[in-house]
Nucleic acid binder design. Structure first.
Lengths: 325, 325
DNA sequence: CCAAGCTGAGATAACGTTATCTCGAAAGGT
DNA sequence: ACCTTTCGAGATAACGTTATCTCAGCTTGG
């Protein structure tokens, strides 16, 4: 910049004015500075700019896996772009250590705010950051033990809706195959399922299977649910990946068992019959997250909000299969 | 930092030394500084650090869609992490204007290097950045018209392999359904297919369909390929999304037509028969990209390299269906 | 004709780091 | 006892911006 000023024969400050389109610079000087910039190939340095300004115009997104389907992240990017904020994202790989590493990096880079899909139960490392003024919003899962803005799906009512839907279609023995209950959403959904069974006066028996998503385990779970004298006539799956795995295990039996999957996905309409799902409102989650983050950045004293976004049952056929006796 | 120095009763430089674990600080002072840091809640500011240091230890990744399956991006993150570099990613949404916006933002932020999935044919905006010392590596597609490092899959031999495989299984009338040929990879694959047909002395006729991925178009393409007096007995699809769409359109006929898809995907083994695919070596692409980027950052004068990574035929059943006459 | 206001542009001081240089004191060798 | 080395720690000057203050040169109104 100092070179540009010398080349154009103006003061440093004037170059800055031209770069920032300040109107108080005469047209002749603007031209001189412009050509000097072109001649010298000057590129402004945002690091210095952000340092001086205090803000970076950047939001961080720390998500499980960048390279996985994540409609919430897409909505977050869109909403941020509409607000003229840049989103820079990194993966946490569902690893607590890596999450901490990523979030702390973003803090040290003084991102204006962070959208986080939190992992695990211990987020103590966030306390000093929050005290130092970090604006943070958790999506999909809450930050346990800390009073932090968050946007969640209504997992429980999703499960209840699915359960009621199956009951209404005549099912009585409904199984649930879910993810590891150490994960918040998996825990919520499994608990909701237990309550549904209890409310209908049923016994769980072999009707609930949770744990890591792994082919062998899913195979056993499906087999257990469908075996015995009182086999399940319907299955609810805990997330999109599990729907796929369960379908894989069901094979050609898929048409005889009613199935409702948690999470909509592209392949829901690939199968016969098409998959009935509990769909999350990912656009609402993403845009709400950005809206809340912006509010907190604008005024760090804003009251903490915990928003629950409704889910929707999408009827496509697999959930309307009648019970086979 | 200056407050920490005052609190601890030491010089500014000494705080810096403690933060950077410089060994030339006495244990007593280290302790004093540590407690001062804790008391004041001091958080180091990477913006200033990077400004002073010159480098940022950060790579940018500008990809089509963060929130889509992208195994190359995952490999890029892994490889960068192994080299102690942080990757921050943003979506270009397959939009040239947005790509430019994203890349220029990363340049102004002085990222040490950028991994780019380039869009379109005009990357003139990159010229001044490259002259100013930007380290860039293109993945999946080349930067047309510019001499820039890139890592590509061997699209042509992938198509050739698929074609030969089908011929070897007795197929004679093989159709290709591909993506919009304005996209580099789609163009390469379609051209390779045309050459395969020519080399086998066949006529294209209704055997090649390219264009945007859209259900109606795919339906027409599938119908056209399978209609007439000499219908196709085998189909090659141009990418994973097209494999899904084509399968959706084939419906229950899927078992009668041989099918080889470009790109492996999770659902390849969900179907009956499992999908035979041309798989890209995404791990190799990602780690090679990082390796090349690191080499260029270390020495900007490194000769430009264009690497082509082999693809692999994975036989699963759908590509071995014999022709139906 | 002069004080007051406006306008365009320069000088200077931050923003929060780290590299370089300097210096005093302690330690070691002849 | 004196010179040299080593070591710990401070002062100062960058890195590349922008905000604030200043000032010269015009208008403009009474």
């Amino acid at each position: 910049m100092v070179d540009v000023a010398r080349e154009a024969g103006v003061a440093l400050r004037t170059v800055s004015r031209v770069v920032n389109q300040d109107s108080t610079v005469g047209p002749e000087l603007v031209q001189r500075v412009r050509t000097a910039i072109a001649v010298l190939g000057y590129r402004p340095d945002e690091r210095a700019r952000h340092l001086r300004l205090g803000v970076t115009g950047t939001l961080g997104a720390a998500v499980r896996q960048l390279s996985h389907v994540n409609p919430v992240l897409r909505a977050v990017e869109r909403a941020a772009r509409a607000a003229d904020l840049m989103v820079l994202a990194a993966s946490t790989e569902d690893d607590e250590t890596l999450e901490r590493h990523v979030v702390e990096s973003m803090c040290r880079r003084r991102f204006d705010g962070i959208v986080l899909e939190p992992i695990g139960d211990d987020h103590g490392y966030l306390v000093p950051e929050l005290e130092a003024g970090l604006s943070l919003v958790a999506v999909d899962r809450p930050v346990l033990g800390l009073d932090v803005d968050c946007v969640l799906s209504d997992n429980r009512s999703g499960i209840e809706t699915a359960y009621r839907h199956l009951v209404r279609h005549g099912h009585d023995r409904i199984a649930y195959i879910g993810d590891d209950e150490r994960i918040y959403t998996a825990r919520e959904r499994a608990m909701a399922f237990r309550e549904c069974v209890a409310a209908h006066g049923g016994a769980l028996g072999t009707m609930l299977h949770t744990g890591q998503v792994e082919s062998g385990r899913i195979r056993e779970a499906v087999r257990a649910a469908l075996a015995g004298p009182a086999p399940a006539t319907a299955i609810v799956t805990g997330n999109a990946q599990l729907s796929v795995e369960v379908l894989r295990q069901l094979g050609t039996d898929a048409v005889d068992v009613a199935l409702i999957g948690f999470d909509d996905s592209e392949l829901a309409t690939l199968l016969r019959p098409d998959l009935t799902v509990i769909a999350q409102d990912t656009d609402a989650i993403g845009s709400t997250a950005i809206e809340m983050l912006r509010a907190r950045i604008a005024d760090p004293a804003t009251e903490v909000r915990k928003v629950t976004v409704p889910v929707e049952l999408i009827v496509r056929g697999s959930g309307e299969v009648p019970p086979a006796f």
